[in-house]
C-alpha cells in the first residue's frame, strides 16, 4: 500500500499504454540497439529526443521516470569515477600515478552516463506502461515459450506482494523498538535480520499457496491455452514502428556520416 515500486505499472490511459505489448518489446530492442549503435553524441541525442516523446505520450509524470534512474545512480557514479580516473586519454589535464583525468576520459564517461540513463529509462517505460499480464502475453507471442513467460509474470506479480509483506514485518518490528535508521553499516545490516527471516518464510508460504491454487485449478505448464484478451496490431503500432525504424536508420546514418566522438 505504501510507495509504488520502481518499474511498476502506472495506470493511466495513454497512447503508449494502448500499444501492443509485442510491439513495445520490439521497440525496446530496437531502442537498445540504437543506443549501442550510436557512437557519437548526436546519435544519443536523437535517442533521447525520441524517448522524451515516448514519455510525453505516455502521460507518466517526469518525477516517476527520474525515480527509475535513481535506482542505478550508485552504479552509474561508480562507473563514471572509474572512467574519469583511469581512462588513458591523450589530452591529460591532471595525473597522479596511474590516475589521470583526460579530455577523452571525461567525454567517454559523459557518454556512459547518458547511455546508462537512456537504457534504464526506456526499459522502465516498458514496465510503467505495460501490465505484467500484457507483457507476458507479448513475450509468449514472440518466443512461443509459455512456461518462461508464466514464470516471468509470476515474478513480476510477486514484487508488490513482497513489498507489502516487507512493510508489514518492518512495522511489526518497529513496534517492538527495532531501529533501521541509525548506527553504522554493520549495525544496519544486522538490523535487517528480523525482517529478512520472516520475509523469506512468507515468500515460501506465498509461493506454496500460489502453487497449490494453480494446481487445484488444473494448471499444467506448457499446454496450449486460449486468451481472454487477443493481441492485435493497430494504427498506433504502425506509427510506432515507423518511428522505431526511423530511429535506428537515423542513428546508423549519423554513425556513418558524422563518425565517432572519440
Amino acid at each position: 500500500m505504501k510507495e509504488v515500486a520502481f518499474g511498476q505499472y502506472y495506470p493511466v490511459d495513454s497512447f503508449v499504454h494502448r500499444l501492443d505489448p509485442r510491439f513495445k518489446l520490439f521497440f525496446l530492442v530496437a531502442f537498445i540497439a540504437a543506443i549501442f549503435v550510436a557512437t557519437n553524441f548526436y546519435g544519443l541525442l536523437v535517442c533521447a529526443g525520441v524517448l522524451v516523446f515516448v514519455i510525453l505520450f505516455s502521460r507518466i509524470p517526469a518525477g516517476k521516470v527520474l525515480r527509475a534512474v535513481r535506482g542505478v545512480l550508485f552504479l552509474a557514479l561508480f562507473a563514471t569515477l572509474i572512467h574519469v580516473f583511469f581512462y588513458a586519454g591523450e589530452t591529460v589535464y591532471w595525473s597522479y600515478g596511474i590516475i589521470c583525468i583526460s579530455r577523452e576520459g571525461l567525454i567517454s564517461s559523459a557518454f556512459l552516463i547518458l547511455r546508462l540513463a537512456l537504457l534504464v529509462v526506456c526499459s522502465s517505460m516498458l514496465t510503467y506502461t505495460t501490465t505484467p499480464v500484457a507483457l507476458t502475453d507479448g513475450i509468449e507471442a514472440i518466443f512461443h515459450v509459455h512456461v518462461i513467460a508464466r514464470i516471468m509474470s509470476i515474478a513480476l506479480r510477486m514484487i508488490p506482494s513482497l513489498m507489502e509483506e516487507t512493510e508489514r514485518v518492518k512495522n511489526a518490528q518497529k513496534a517492538r523498538g527495532a531501529d533501521f535508521e541509525s548506527g553504522n553499516l554493520f549495525k544496519r545490516v544486522k538490523a535487517f535480520v528480523p525482517i529478512l527471516i520472516p520475509l523469506l518464510l512468507s515468500a515460501f508460504r506465498i509461493a506454496e499457496d500460489l502453487g497449490d491454487a494453480m494446481e487445484s485449478r488444473c494448471y499444467v505448464g506448457g499446454k496450449k491455452r486460449t486468451k481472454y484478451k487477443k493481441l492485435c496490431f493497430s494504427w498506433r503500432d504502425l506509427l510506432g514502428m515507423v518511428v522505431a525504424c526511423a530511429l535506428v536508420a537515423g542513428v546508423v546514418l549519423l554513425r556513418i556520416y558524422v563518425g565517432a566522438t572519440l
Binding site: 508489514r168 511489526a172 513496534a175 528480523p194 525482517i195
Partner: peptide, 15 residues
C-alpha cells in the same frame, strides 16, 4: 515502549 502493538497474524514476525 508505552504503546504495544500486536499486528494481524503476529506469528509471522517471529525470527
Amino acid at each position: 515502549r508505552h504503546v504495544g502493538m500486536v499486528f494481524q497474524y503476529p506469528e509471522y514476525q517471529l525470527f
